Computed example of a mutant assay.
Amino acid sequence: MPQNRETTYQAARAVAQQLEAHFDKHLTTARHQGDTNLAEAPRAKTIELILDTAFWASLRHEEGRPPRISLAFLSPEQAEQPLLFQQHLPFSSYVLTKLGPGVERPGIHLGVWLKEGELCVWGTTRSIPSLCFVVDVSEPGLLVIKHKRIDGFGKFANVAVLKGDQVKMIDEEQNSMPDCPNMLSSLLGFTTRSSWHDGINVLVQLAVSMREHRRGGLLLVVPSDSKTWEESIVHPILYAVTPAFDGLAALMRQDEEEKSQPAWQAALRREVDSLAGLTAIDGATILNDRYELLAFGAKIGRPMKSVPVERVTITEPVLGGGAATVHPSQIGGTRHLSAAQFVHDQHDALALTASQDGRFTIFSWSPCEQRVQAHRIDTLLL
Rank of each mutant, 00 (worst) to 15 (best):
G277D: 07
Q254P: 11
A207S: 15
D171P: 01
A298N: 01
L99H: 02
L187G: 07
F190T: 05
R376P: 06
P367N: 11
K299I: 04
N4P: 00
F153V: 12
G64I: 08
R149Q: 06
W365E: 09
G283P: 01
S138E: 15
Q341S: 05
R311W: 06
R215H: 05
P90C: 08
K25D: 13
S127T: 14
P367R: 15
S93F: 05
L110K: 03
E292R: 11
D151F: 13
G297H: 01
R31D: 08
P66H: 14
F73E: 02
K148T: 10
V307M: 06
D378A: 11
A207V: 01
A207W: 00
Q265D: 06
F245I: 09
L219N: 02
Q346V: 12
V204T: 12
R31G: 07
L99M: 07
G107H: 07
W264G: 06
D198I: 10
L352E: 08
L119G: 04
I377P: 11
R215W: 01
G102Y: 11
L96M: 07
P317V: 13
L114R: 09
G100I: 04
P181C: 14
Q81W: 10
A374Y: 08
L293C: 13
G247E: 15
L131V: 04
E212P: 00
L162R: 01
F190P: 01
A16C: 08
V112W: 06
G111A: 15
M1E: 09
W365V: 10
P181S: 10
M177I: 04
L268M: 10
R270V: 08
K227T: 10
F296I: 02
Q17G: 05
R211Y: 03
V144N: 01
M210T: 05
P2E: 07
K98E: 04
L248C: 09
A324Y: 02
L238G: 05
E6P: 08
V95N: 04
T46Q: 10
N37G: 07
E316V: 13
K115D: 14
E77L: 10
L287K: 10
I233G: 03
I300F: 01
I50E: 03
I281R: 08
E257F: 13
L251M: 14
L268C: 04
V208S: 14
F73H: 11
L114P: 00
L187T: 08
D282P: 00
S260P: 00
E369Y: 08
K305F: 09
A295L: 04
L206G: 14
A324C: 01
P101T: 06
C132V: 09
L27W: 13
V202R: 07
E118G: 02
L268Q: 01
